[in-house]
């Protein structure tokens, strides 16, 4: 991995975390009278997308990198139509995880975020778009990071466990939180949090099962295919 590249993102990210995000929260509390959780959380989630976009853009990516990301994101979006007969059975998370493992954390994040954005372009944008972009993206990013530090392996078991957990804990966790933020500060009570998470649990469980199924069957052939493409394109692992 390129050191300077890593540092720039770290710098940007720290700037965001230490300065911009607190400033937004302060603005929310002081100027907007502490009631606009929905708006503030939306802003913060949008911020998190910025460093990824900026680093990617400033790197002047080559044609083949764009193509690989676009193809994977399009497969994730179009993949839903291959499962028209099984509603709620979506391959997005599995493909994002495979991308993170095979092509690195950045590609994982971008495929996730782009998929989130474009699929909503077909199904309708809404306030949930940035949340979905972030959740898909961060799962891909984590897959890449964990693979790099060897916590995650290319084995079916390892990927399936990560896939199942990330569907419930990360994706489900973030999306449920986003629905909670609707109700404002007084709703952050123990009961309401439990209620929201329980009501979302069954959806998350189906999502997790789908992700595990996809990873179980798809992981090995997909990783092989991506390896072949990396060789053919001459994409060097970053």
């Amino acid at each position: 991995m390129n050191r300077g590249w890593m540092n720039r993102r770290t710098l940007l990210a720290s700037l965001l975390i230490l300065v911009v995000i607190p400033a937004t929260i302060v603005m929310g509390i002081v100027v907007m009278d502490d009631r606009k959780y929905y708006f503030i959380s939306l802003l913060i989630i949008l911020y998190t997308l910025i460093p990824f976009a900026m680093v990617f853009e400033s790197r002047k990516p080559q044609a083949r990198e764009l193509i690989v990301i676009a193809v994977l994101a399009a497969i994730a979006v179009a993949g839903r139509s291959a499962f028209f007969m099984l509603p709620q059975f979506k391959p997005v998370l599995a493909i994002v995880i495979i991308t993170g493992v095979s092509l690195g954390a950045e590609a994982g994040f971008l495929v996730g975020a782009v998929t989130g954005f474009v699929s909503n372009f077909f199904f309708g944008q809404g306030p949930w778009t940035p949340w979905q972009m972030f959740s898909f993206g961060i799962v891909g990013f984590l897959a890449g990071i964990l693979f790099r530090i060897k916590w995650l392996r290319r084995s079916k078991l390892s990927l399936c466990i990560f896939g199942g957990l990330s569907a419930i804990v990360i994706y489900g966790g973030i999306m449920n939180f986003s629905s909670l933020s609707l109700f404002g500060s007084n709703s952050y009570t123990k009961e309401s949090i439990i209620a929201i998470y329980i009501s979302g649990f069954w959806f998350d469980l189906v999502h997790a099962i789908a992700t595990v199924c996809f990873l179980f069957i798809l992981a090995r052939p997909m990783l092989e295919k991506l390896d072949r493409i990396k060789r053919k394109y001459g994409l060097i692992e970053r």
């Binding site: 976009a53 002047k60 764009l66």
Partner: peptide, 14 residues
Amino acid sequence: PALSLIFSMVLRFV
């Protein structure tokens, strides 16, 4: 520019 080109490409591919 790169991300919006990706966006356009995904719309083309889907």
